[in-house]
Computed example of a mutant assay.
Amino acid sequence: MIIKKIFNNNAILAKDSKKQEIVIMGRGVGFKKSVGDEVDENLIEKTFILKQKDASEKFKLLLEDIPTEHVSLCYDIIEYANNILSVELNDYIYVTLTDHISYALKLFEEGLNRPNALIWEIKKFYPKEFEIGLKALEFIEDETNKRLPEDEAGNIALHLINAQTNISSNKVEDIAHQTKMIQDILNIIKYTYNIALNEKSLNYERFVTHLRFFFQRLNKNEKMEKEEDDFLLKQVRTKYKKAYECMLKIQKYLEKELSDEEQLYLTIHIQRVTQR
């Protein structure tokens, strides 16, 4: 195998004899190496072969954006999930779950907690995925010495549910309507900021994923419980004034009064997707 790209000392992109791209992880696998060198196969610990091209490209972006340790950790969680679940998981799980857990750890370090308003529904309707989520919290604690709250087990379960390719999709009409609304919301942001959004960025991917879950809740008439303490929202409203004003435009477009929590998440995502 030949090295095609070096992400850092412990992660590289290689090509095998069949010209297939493989992401390789291992301690020191990229250390003092150059593009075109042979891969030291004795240093290989984990390999990623993502067949979906878009997922593969996003995963490579992810490797440049978050710690290698988080990628390795999520690989172990996904491998565990694959062994427990008797369904095929979409390649995107390597992107979405890794991105989510890395960001959850960042928020945890900053003392912020993201409540999961669907926690009881997830426990009831998706017990197997939730149990995997709880096991994932153990993986995370063993690796980082950080014990994330139970809500995160629910969030991890949601990613696993979303990645199951055999889960029945919504009606075609619903998907078409949802797609149009997502595009309308993105247009509101573009016109408010007078910018073109980078559709290949991770922040864009995060935002669209959030909107998909948001519309799933709307379709099922599920509501996020309103938090009594809106301290975080007040802080965000002051710090990201333009993003908050943009969120209000989106709320008006939706013709729906959003909870403080939904307003908070939308405002943060708008701020992130319009930066860099």
Rank of each mutant, 00 (worst) to 15 (best):
R217I: 00
N198K: 15
F213K: 03
H210D: 00
R206A: 09
I195K: 12
R217V: 00
I195M: 11
E222M: 11
K190N: 09
F207R: 01
R212E: 04
N198R: 10
Y204C: 09
N194P: 03
N203H: 14
K223D: 08
L197S: 01
N194L: 14
I195N: 08
T209E: 04
N219L: 12
E199V: 15
F215A: 00
Y193Q: 05
L211Y: 02
I189R: 00
N221R: 06
T209L: 07
H210C: 00
H210L: 03
S201F: 11
N221D: 11
Y193R: 06
H210P: 01
L202S: 08
K223L: 15
Q216K: 06
F213V: 05
K200I: 07
E205L: 08
N219E: 14
K200L: 11
T192K: 10
N194E: 13
K190W: 08
L197V: 04
F214K: 00
T192A: 14
Q216Y: 10
A196N: 13
E222C: 05
E205M: 10
L202F: 08
L202T: 08
H210F: 15
S201Y: 10
Y191A: 07
E205Q: 10
F214T: 01
I188C: 08
F215D: 00
R217N: 07
Y193T: 06
K223E: 12
N198V: 15
K223Q: 14
R217H: 10
K220S: 11
E199F: 07
E205Y: 15
K220E: 08
K223N: 10
K200F: 09
K200C: 08
K223P: 02
I189Q: 02
V208G: 02
F215L: 03
T192W: 01
F207Q: 01
N221Y: 03
F215P: 00
N198P: 04
S201G: 09
Q216I: 10
R206P: 03
I189L: 05
R206S: 09
K223W: 07
K200D: 11
I195R: 09
L218R: 06
